[in-house]
Simulated assay, not measured.
Amino acid sequence: MGGFGGIARCRKHQHTESIRLPRRVASQPAFARQREPRRWNSAKNQQPFRTNEPCRRNACADSPITATSNWRLVKHIARPLDLNPYDADTLAQIGHFRALRGDGEAGLALLDKAIQLNPMHPGWYYADRAAALFVLGRYRDVVACLSCLPRKSAWQWAWLAACHALEGDVEKARACARQGRALEPGLTVKDFLADLRMKRTEDRERMRLGLQRAGWDDALP
């Protein structure tokens, strides 16, 4: 019973951690310094880790601040790989970060490895993989990747509109723009770019050009 109780406490703790962490937590250097019991990882250089450390580090990975303002936190997000090298979600997150930083090849390789490890993966794998493909200029593959999503947000319709436009298919681009604007009538190109987490100026510029060619701001549902 003690074993089952420990599992229940761990699951309860993990759940409360995931809902109590604020969005800005990834930008706080003192975040990892919590007064908790410490154990030793004897498998690798006797480095200490906390009992709920993978949960906390994956929570950092979910913060939008991480991708653009503090690349150094990626090494902390990757820590669960020391505990489980087959952690597909962590591989996918690191691949997404590398793509956002402009290294599309490395990002795509990590995302593809994550998909191999977890064929029944959640839908956000598709969106993250689409970002890596966009960085590489593979617009048709972006469209194919996002088409796997059963339901799309306005932002994902914007990605589709931009990629169709960059491929020269303006008719499909405008159709995607109308779908997206129907979901978020107030979403403009400026707003979309403000939320875009890509680091390189050339990637952001290509997205802006694609949305403008698709007539995103002028699209009516």
Rank of each mutant, 00 (worst) to 15 (best):
F192W: 10
A109P: 03
G3N: 15
E205H: 13
K152C: 02
F97W: 09
F192V: 04
R72P: 01
G137S: 09
A67Q: 12
T90Y: 02
T51E: 12
G95S: 09
T51R: 09
R57D: 07
K12P: 00
G210Y: 05
L136I: 02
V135C: 03
D169I: 07
A88I: 01
G102V: 04
E105C: 03
E53V: 00
W157P: 02
M120N: 14
P85S: 14
R181E: 13
R197T: 03
W157E: 14
G95I: 07
S27H: 00
L193S: 02
A158L: 04
T68E: 14
G180E: 07
I7V: 15
L136Q: 14
D103V: 04
G102S: 06
R11T: 12
I65D: 15
D141W: 05
R200M: 11
R129D: 03
R140Y: 04
P22T: 07
D217H: 09
D203K: 00
R213Q: 13
F97Y: 13
C176G: 06
A144W: 00
D89Y: 13
R35P: 06
Y126N: 11
N70I: 10
I77C: 12
N118R: 10
S147R: 12
L146F: 00
A59M: 14
Q156H: 10
R197A: 08
R98W: 06
T188A: 04
R178P: 12
A177N: 13
K199W: 10
A161F: 10
K152D: 01
K152H: 00
G180V: 02
A175T: 13
E105R: 10
T51V: 11
A67K: 03
N84V: 00
G6P: 00
A127M: 05
A92Q: 01
W159V: 02
L183I: 09
T201Y: 15
